[in-house]
Write a protein that binds this DNA or RNA. Sequence first.
DNA 1: CGCTTGATTGATGCAAGTCAATTATGGTGG
DNA 2: CCACCATAATTGACTTGCATCAATCAAGCG
Lengths: 252, 252
Amino acid sequence: MSNTPVADGRATSCAACPLRQKRALREFSADELAIVQRMKTGELRMKPGASFLRQGERNEHFYTILSGWAFRYKMLPDGRRQILNYALPADLVGLQGSLMVEMEHSVEALTDVTLCAFPRERLWTLYSNSPSLAFDITWLAAREEQLVDEHLLTLGQRTALERTAYVLLHLYTRAEEVGLTRGSDPVHLPITQQHLADTLGLSLVHTNKTLKRLHVAGMIRWKDRLFEVLDRQALAAAAGGDITRIRQRPFI
Amino acid sequence: MSNTPVADGRATSCAACPLRQKRALREFSADELAIVQRMKTGELRMKPGASFLRQGERNEHFYTILSGWAFRYKMLPDGRRQILNYALPADLVGLQGSLMVEMEHSVEALTDVTLCAFPRERLWTLYSNSPSLAFDITWLAAREEQLVDEHLLTLGQRTALERTAYVLLHLYTRAEEVGLTRGSDPVHLPITQQHLADTLGLSLVHTNKTLKRLHVAGMIRWKDRLFEVLDRQALAAAAGGDITRIRQRPFI
DNA sequence: CGCTTGATTGATGCAAGTCAATTATGGTGG
DNA sequence: CCACCATAATTGACTTGCATCAATCAAGCG
């Protein structure tokens, strides 16, 4: 198999994928690159607020996030919403809907999002042609579950203050991991307090008051979508332990 | 490859695996059966209360539950415990610990448990030799995440009464799926109210009082480890929607 | 028979929810 | 340029769902 970049009308060739540069992501062989390239059908752009995967619907593609932020969520019939997790660049979304009959959650864009699309049928081809990539996909699924496990511990056992500290530190750390911190500290955190409340399982008002406590204590600054950790030690302590970091990770 | 059952000192041959009978589980080809058989190193028996996979430790095996109940949980340094999910026959546990460096949660037996053990290195062999089984493993990982997602919605958004109704209905349904209902109705539910409280993220006392409400309303009966759904309609309504059932599922 | 584990119940307190009003802030059309 | 509107953040007053504390009861069991 050739390692020549495939030239085709698509926006980006996988060999030139900007995500490949990231230190946190594992290297691909030329073979693997070619397989992913052949599986990719194109790119998709989403506007903030667009739900591109919806609970109850069958989805024909799954996606890797090339750029932007999104979030996975579930809703109850009466409108209560629980945000399950956030999806950042290099994260895989919609895999569940490709394996099962239909999606059991929805995914919505928070910023302009660029997605790399793979048709669900070709997942099977990938499993037949590349055990290593199949392994990576399982790894990503297991990693996602691990994050949800941690979130579950947070909602079930931590107090409002601990929860808030934990989730903020978690988001900050993940943004760092994929190089979303410009320069030193502040990250662009494209969520409202309502999103945070729906993540924490708290009311909007109480979320606001808890944030204020963290702010007054000098641990964080969050203004105009810019988020800054001022005292990581203290924030980690308030969260009840630091965040589990991932060394090297695969992505498709 | 032969479809003759492999005779070797092990307790059960995979071809004769009692779980194969279950309607809910997908059929295996002779090839697949042989591969699983070769991967299996033996069986393990656990006593109630034994934690056979532990948070922070590296585990050399992952397991399929052949019989019995177990639960996955995480703990905070100060002892607070969150039960993430329960593991019933045909469920896979410890996969995460085989993919990642170490376990991020623990698993403890609730009853006598028989496990089918697979060494972590052979997972790679399986991915190389059987795309279909690799696919099944990913399916199981995605399914587990789906269950945790639902649980997260429950803890984040549902009230104590809704939570309790939901989790009980969930457990009952899953027990049904793998044929744990003897005769018609009552299931052996091998958990204490403390387990349930740690699952729901509620205090023991409040869990007890909420159970009583469901009992008084004539929806459930739970006495001496025997659990019965008396009014499924009402219980589902109290839970805020019925449980997502799975038609056909794979297992390893 | 006393010990331990689990279930049950009442009294009291507090963390978080709800209600309601006010203050930015930015967009937009007259 | 400004009046108008919608979205988001903030704050105070009041309410409540769930936690905590503290007994009591029931059942197995060595």
